[in-house]
Computed example of a mutant assay.
Amino acid sequence: MIKVLLVDDHTILRDGLKQILADTDDIQAVDEAADGHEAIRKIQALALDAVIMDMSMPGRSGLELLKQIKLEKPKLPVLILSMHSEEQYAVRAYRAGAAGYLTKDSASTLLVSAIRKVANGGIFISPNSAERMAQEFNLARQADNLPHTSLSNREFQVFHLLVNGKGLTEIANQLSLSVKTVSTHKTHILQKMHMTNTSELIRYAMKRDLL
């Protein structure tokens, strides 16, 4: 039996995932967590075969939580379940130690096979994006000097929200941060990317398909 922990701050989504897994005879959702702190406690306490985790967690980012999980349990596979497309976040997720990346809109058809693969030591990349992901990995290796690659994971998260039209207050509410902290992140992003305003960030993101 493959024992998994579900980590997502939305009860409805966790219930939906449990319903999908209830139809299998070899995967069991043994517990769930609504935030990063609860997830770490349960990962430390439970014998698990895999963790299914949302990328967009309140407070700390999913990538930060992923790194902490890999420090606590280096061999525990983590499958990222995200609303963001693979080309936006998957490369960073795999670099941080994820065993798989799956968008939420494909979870109903691919979740079970993805869990089985990562629990058995494999790496899951969705069939529809395998070629694109290979291109992204190659580009990432060749383009480590591009401005956005210098951003920390939290800065990249704020950058992504900024270029998709979110205001500072909206970003602060979504990430459970203060407006001042988000403003500081924005300042650092502009400095690191040698830009002066959000419009330049948006043009940069459009040119590199980061929206």
Rank of each mutant, 00 (worst) to 15 (best):
K73D: 02
L175N: 01
E131V: 14
N153C: 14
F156S: 05
E87L: 11
I12G: 06
H84R: 05
I2E: 02
M57R: 00
F137M: 13
T11G: 02
S85L: 04
S126Q: 14
K70D: 05
A47E: 13
F124A: 11
P58G: 04
A96V: 02
T187V: 14
T169H: 09
D54M: 07
H37E: 15
L81A: 12
L151G: 01
P127L: 02
T181G: 02
L5E: 02
I202F: 07
L146P: 00
L190T: 10
M206Q: 11
Q135W: 00
S183D: 13
T187Q: 11
R141M: 13
R41A: 15
K192V: 00
T187R: 15
Q191W: 00
L63T: 13
K75S: 15
Q68Y: 01
N197E: 08
S199F: 01
M193D: 09
E131C: 12
D49K: 12
L48P: 06
H37R: 14
V112L: 05
D35N: 09
A50L: 08
K67N: 06
Y89W: 07
T149K: 05
R208P: 02
T109H: 07
N145K: 10
D9L: 04
A140Y: 02
S113I: 09
L79S: 01
I52M: 07
T198H: 05
L63S: 03
D23E: 14
R154W: 02
K104E: 13
A45Y: 00
L48W: 12
I52Q: 01
H37W: 10
S108R: 08
P58R: 11
K192W: 04
L13S: 02
K3A: 15
S61F: 14
D9V: 13
V7F: 06
K18H: 12
M133V: 00
Q174A: 12
Y204V: 04
I52R: 03
A29I: 15
L161M: 11
F156Y: 07
Q19S: 14
A134H: 13
R92C: 13
S178E: 02
K192L: 03
S113R: 06
M206A: 04
A47P: 04
L79Y: 06
V51W: 12
I171C: 02
I115Q: 14
R132G: 01
E136I: 05
I69N: 11
L46F: 15
T24Q: 00
A22I: 07
R132Q: 07
L13K: 03
Q19D: 14
N145G: 03
D144E: 08
L102M: 05
M195Q: 09
P147T: 03
L146N: 08
K117L: 14
A33Q: 03
E32Q: 13
G165H: 10
E131G: 10
D23I: 15
S129R: 12
S199N: 15
L63R: 06
